[in-house]
Design a protein around this nucleic acid. Structure first.
Lengths: 147, 147
DNA sequence: CAGTATCCCAGATGATACTG
DNA sequence: CAGTATCATCTGGGATACTG
């Protein structure tokens, strides 16, 4: 639903370039990896290695089997996860992150670092915003803070 | 809605560690930065610098004013974007990425690189999956491919 | 065990129209 | 210009129950 557009060849640049003609180049990845459950699933698979359905279910707190199945199928289709079915009794199915999926690891580490360094600042910003919003409420150009 | 958990101090590690006690540590950031419109907005702000509401509206194709306002407010509250209101006639409002927001740039560049290098492989994986699914349809352990 | 089948809901988004 | 107000819609996800 969005466009792909290469911006750089290799190495991590501080500034990413933009193209007036095309939409946000990272929208496709967001779509692929970042959603409520997709991220935790990939994370768990990468962290704990090959696992069975039930193990994932237990580790990813509060996920339901329906959703777990849906996301797992999507990830399999996208080539990020490999599913192995063993026709035994009872059936045994194992999920494993693929080579392609593993290439996301540095990205996840990057995200983790950013979180550690900046999530606190986000919390502070929110408090400040909310305080300001409640103090002076109906000021011009500054609508009350919801959410 | 999810937990924060520091995994590393600095430098980009290939493998991120996991903690059996806690949920996916990057879930909070996902929530903060990666959604359908939040990402394109941050991207555009970072790429084109300070802009007025209308400029953002024009650059982010197909976004509606309502949604643009909502996301912008959220980003402002989270401290990722700075809003400046000029009481003129007609009114002039400018949006700019904050220092905190700018710290996401390397991450975006990282994402862009990953996209360029791997989105093609995802497309290939999908084709293979769909082909396999349609060829042999009701095989055990391999449900038909939807989506 | 590893799912599938249903029903249901909330929040995000889309479409339109209207102001200070 | 920079939104706000409404209403319709849609999809991911939640709750629950049931099989090969």
């Amino acid at each position: 639903m969005t466009l792909l557009r290469p911006t750089s060849q290799n190495g991590v640049r501080m500034e990413f370039t933009a193209d007036p003609e095309l939409a946000c180049p990272i929208a496709p990845v967001v779509d692929l990896v970042f959603s409520r459950w997709t991220t935790p699933i990939l994370w768990t698979l990468n962290a704990y290695g090959r696992q069975r359905f039930v193990e994932l279910e237990r580790r990813i707190t509060s996920i339901t089997p329906k959703v777990l199945t849906q996301r797992l199928r999507q990830l399999e289709r996208d080539g990020l996860v490999v599913r192995t079915y063993h026709a035994e009794v009872p059936p045994r199915v194992e999920y494993e992150i693929s080579e392609l999926g593993r290439s996301l690891a540095p990205l996840f580490a990057h995200l983790t670092d950013w979180s550690q360094d900046n999530l606190g600042r986000v919390a502070t910003a929110r408090e400040a915003y909310d305080a300001r919003a409640s103090r002076q409420d109906g000021r011009a150009g500054v609508p009350a803070g919801r959410r």
